[in-house]
Amino acid sequence: MPDRTRLVGNAAYGWLLLLPAAVLLAAFTHYPAVATLAQSLFTSGTALRPAEFTGLDNYRFMLEDEVFWRVLENNAWYAIGTIPISIALAMLMAVWVNRRLPLRAFVRMSYFTPTVLPMIAVANIWLFFYTPEIGLIDQIAAGFGIGSHNWLGNPDTVLGCIIVLTIWKEAGFFMIFYLAALQSLPPELEEAARLEGAGHWHFFRRVTFPLLMPTTLFVLINAVINSFKLVDQLFILTKGGPDNASALLLYYIYEVAFSFFDQAYASTLTVVLLAVLAIIAIGQFVILDKRIHYR
């Protein structure tokens, strides 16, 4: 009997210790998520027309909303375009920079620079690159006798331009994680492999790459989340145009919320965004976890 009270006391004690964290989590994570879900079932109220319950009307509207499908498709391309390349590039740069190079610190720093710059600043730099006629790319192209190209004004190239910028911005960031992981690999592994006659490529494929898998999973999740999260550059470069050719889901949510002032529909889109991210995250953990060696 006394044992039992002690057990109960311990449990209560444990819960009490958890309480502050739980309250914060609930207040800043769970409550907003639930509130968003609830809001998506109402109309957007204004002072003169209060919000009404409409069930799934907002979702029905969404399914008919061409812009929604457009941004979803754009977002898929954006993800496909940025994720693999930025990860591959990050890994490549990390392996390269991890070698004993002259000026190693300098090279590392220069790869890392895009990461420390705010996205808005980066976008402003790249706006100057992409601007037709007077932009850097066009001026270099003109040096080779190539005509000017309206990179951001053309729906066929605009998303590609955004993707390139994003890769440039992200690869350096991911490189840092790979670099940290590489430095925690014992150097004897490479020495052992060298003695066994394994070339650089063989060693990379058979040892480095698999041992970097936990890092890759981490980076992959970040990259996927970023592909839905990183939209700052659109504000500077394209505002989602021309004709939504470069609009992404989160940017559209911003537009709906703060330019259209349609909180309800913005909530609806946010619910979709959360669902997409949750599904991707779960899928990644389930599928990749089996194939990853954690030390």
Partner: peptide, 19 residues
């Protein structure tokens, strides 16, 4: 006029550089 869209933010520079 160039085809495609023309950027609001850089247009003044285009004009000032006689493009």
């Amino acid at each position: 006029m160039p085809s495609g869209t023309i950027e609001w933010g850089t247009l003044r520079k285009n004009f000032l550089e006689a493009r």
